[in-house]
């Protein structure tokens, strides 16, 4: 366990991971019940990455997220009720029902949005980091992306920009071993973090199932960025329990074995952390159970709240396209 972690923070990190786990476990049910249109990419299994990194951030720091973005949003302080409301497409949702799972954001909390395009958030994070640097503000930008994104050109372009301009950016590569069903090793040679080394930035691999290890690595990177030391790259090896998306468990996929899934679950990030909290006398087993009940209640209340929220009016479908509309712009699909 991290040596520098105050007990209260260690407990909060467990609760934060639990919230993500329970949130996305609930999401799977709700997709099946058709309360969530479309599908979602669940974060279960990867909780230590989002929580480890976001625990090193403040509200003023920003992040760009991925298509698998619920974990990052919750870890950065996203509200459970407003998130469910967004997933249900309600007007009280974060994006007023216009974005859904793949675009969920809370700009006021520095969450610049999940993204449906792999790697697209990396340059966006760099632009925000430039603003912080130019204004002399000590904030940082975190760009989350997966192992698949390491072969996306724009991610490399963004790493280069961050390197040449010494931007306060932390590139967090969540290596869950598969791009949809394509194994990492078929599309990528060398370790992922070795690619970032060629941009001259600090770059390491950490155990993405160990929230303490992720936090320690993230904190060093954040401190480096805040003090003008430029960008860093963290490779966090982790695993996604539900596969690529909600629908996958109804399919007969063969790209990974049950044995492999079971092996990873033996190193479940929540179990690992709970064990250490108990061993370190930071929590009792009863405390853990109590936290589970509290988070269960929070999730249930969030779902209840979202169910009660009104849906947006179809008359307002063209709203939010522009800050300033002009006559006939944006155009409707039929003349009225």
């Amino acid at each position: 366990m991290s040596n520098i972690l105050p007990p209260q923070m260690a407990r909060k990190m467990y609760a934060d991971m639990l919230r993500i786990r329970q949130f996305d476990t609930k999401v799977v049910e709700l997709v099946d019940d058709d309360l969530i249109p479309g599908s979602c990419h669940e974060y279960c299994g990867q909780e230590a990455v989002a929580v480890g990194v976001c625990s090193a951030l403040t509200d003023k720091d920003i992040l760009t997220s991925t298509h698998r973005g619920h974990g990052h949003t919750l870890a950065k302080g996203g509200d459970v009720g407003k998130m469910f409301a967004e997933l249900f497409g309600r007007s009280a949702g974060y994006n007023k029902g216009r974005g859904g799972s793949m675009h969920i954001a809370d700009v006021s909390l520095g969450i610049f949005g999940a993204n449906g395009i792999v790697g697209a958030g990396a340059p966006i994070a760099c632009g925000a980091a430039h603003k912080f640097k130019a204004a002399g503000e000590p904030h940082v930008a975190v760009s989350f992306f997966g192992d698949g994104a390491i072969n996306q050109g724009v991610v490399h372009e963004a790493m280069n920009l961050a390197a040449i301009w010494r931007l306060p950016v932390i590139f967090v590569c969540e290596n869950n071993l598969y791009a949809m069903t394509t194994p990492l090793r078929e599309v990528t040679i060398l370790e992922l973090h070795e690619r970032a080394q060629s941009y001259g930035m600090a770059s390491i691999k950490v155990d993405g199932m160990d929230v303490g290890a992720v936090f320690d690595a993230a904190l060093s990177a954040v401190e480096r960025a805040r003090s003008g030391g430029g960008p860093s790259f963290l490779q966090c090896d982790t695993y996604r329990y539900f596969g690529h998306y909600s629908g996958e468990r109804h399919m007969k996929t063969t790209y990974r074995t049950q044995q492999e899934i079971d092996e990873w679950k033996k190193r479940d990030p929540l179990d690992l952390w709970a064990e250490r909290l108990i061993r370190g006398s930071i929590c009792s087993a009863q405390d853990i159970e109590r936290m589970k009940r509290e988070v269960d209640d929070e999730i249930a209340q969030g779902v209840e709240y979202a169910r009660g929220c009104p849906t947006p009016s179809p008359q307002d479908a063209l709203e939010y396209m522009y800050a300033v509309n002009y006559p006939y712009t944006p155009a409707k699909g039929a003349e009225q």
Binding site: P123, I124, A125, C126, G127, H130, K131, A141, V154, L161
Partner: peptide, 19 residues
């Protein structure tokens, strides 16, 4: 650098951050 995609995205991030 000659990185059109990145500098375009960079502007989006800078705008979201207030520039």
């Amino acid at each position: 650098p000659i990185s059109e995609a990145a500098f375009t995205g960079f502007a989006t991030g800078a705008a979201l951050a207030g520039l």
